[in-house]
Design a binder for these strands. Structure first.
Lengths: 251, 251
DNA sequence: TACAGGCTTTGATCTGGGTCAAGGATATAG
DNA sequence: CTATATCCTTGACCCAGATCAAAGCCTGTA
């Protein structure tokens, strides 16, 4: 039974709860945080909860953009392809991420689940109605879009002008800053254990490098005692400040 | 007299016309297009018209973001710098461009006028008031931000995964598609004359290359009869389709 | 007409990161 | 426990584009 469900790439959760949003773990991290508790039922009614299995591509670049998504659990990679298969990962969508800003009539990117991903799905008309009814939601989306643009420009600087070493350092620092405690201010002593749900190949495609360069550069960081690599999915940042200096080209 | 004005980097236009917006050349291309004629006076009252001389940096990355701008004439380059001077041009802002989306509390980029640039300047509180009074304006900004994100992701693909040849072809095609007539559908026969207000150095910093590579690649395109270069600020696209195929990696 | 200063082009050489290739670690299936 | 697959690491070598260097070529000034 569970095996059967496991084998299906997309699962639309059967039993709908009118209070899904009220108990949602992702709410404080997402655009939904601007909706008051009183209006949550309205929000929940517009959304469909979907579970995506690891490796499944649930948004295909170029497809008509009928749905918008909010990630409530897991992580997805967002990417664009060239005809010959070259890939650029444009970002990773984790809990709270609103998917569907970089969208006109069709999706500008594809999205694939890295692990088991849970999403809230809205169709266009229902989202439109929500935005009309809750101006705060529209304002929040604009704010989120602005932040995404800042991040995108930072990534252009990385892709256009940084060395492999600087790119990896930037990536590790950005990941470390996602951690709840004292973002961006960890001293060189404190150990920060960061989780990497993506493969080396995904990191390479995100940073405009190859897996070999990722591997070599991480090995070098390890040799320099800047990081530890307990396993492939985790990295311990030993010297946050030093890595931060490398990331910003101050070396 | 004119010489004196020329020497000042920023000129705030003295004689304010309450109907500035009504006769604005940039309106059809800008976010202001969603404001009805009846409300135009309100819009004009919130804006200050400013002229920026070529070469002047009128937005400095990191400065507190007190103003938002709308370009009404000329072109500016938007860029980010690394401490050692490496530069990434993240875009070019021409007529109708709204400056201030990639902004949190401080500017995420610098902006420098390439030629004489005219801008409408809004301060934060006044823009906030306009957005509250005209929800259509907020919706329009979200739409514009979405489009910018699509463009930004396309640029990440270019910077992360395209060859020098593909980058230049992409740039020329994007410029050609800015031309009013039949965007994106010019046959290989038709001549499209594109204007380049920026230097080779700016193009290099936009495409993550060096001026030498820009120059060599353009020379090669010329030798292959794909383009003509009547002067440094203009390029005639002879084979749009062929360049488009190069741009998308289909070669 | 000459000269200065800033772009741009072109050539020669170098190198960071890509490509190719071999092995090692982990994981899931049988 | 072994087989097969997938991912990761490391080494040897190569090349697209960077760097270094030297002319051209405008445009404005006098």
């Amino acid at each position: 039974m569970t095996a059967m469900i496991r084998s299906r790439p997309l699962v639309i959760d059967a039993h709908r709860d009118r209070n899904v949003c009220l108990h949602c773990q992702a709410r404080p991290f997402s655009v939904c945080s601007v909706i008051s508790d009183a209006d949550l039922e309205r929000l929940g009614a517009a959304a469909v909860t979907v579970t995506v299995q690891p490796g499944h591509t649930f948004i295909q670049e170029g497809d008509p953009a009928e749905h918008f998504f909010n990630v409530t659990a897991g992580t997805a990679k967002l990417f664009k392809l060239l005809p010959d298969g070259r890939r650029q990962v444009t970002g990773f969508a984790a809990i709270g991420y609103f998917l569907g800003l970089a969208v006109s009539s069709s999706y500008a990117f594809s999205a694939e689940a890295l692990d088991t991903v849970r999403i809230c799905r809205f169709n266009r008309p229902k989202l439109r109605a929500l935005l009309d009814d809750f101006p705060a939601l529209e304002k929040k989306l604009l704010e989120v879009a602005s932040n995404e643009l800042v991040v995108a420009q930072e990534q252009m600087l990385l892709l256009g002008r940084k060395t492999a070493r600087e790119r990896l350092a930037s990536f590790l620092i950005a990941r470390a800053n996602l951690l709840p405690h004292c973002a961006g201010h960890a001293p060189d002593g404190a150990k920060e254990r960061i989780h990497l749900p993506m493969t080396r190949s995904d990191i390479a495609d995100y940073l405009g490098l190859t897996i070999e360069t990722i591997s070599r550069t991480l090995s070098r960081f390890k040799a320099e005692q800047l990081i530890e690599i307990p396993n492939n999915a985790e990295i311990v940042v030993l010297k946050h400040e030093t890595l931060d200096n490398i990331a910003t080209g101050m070396t």
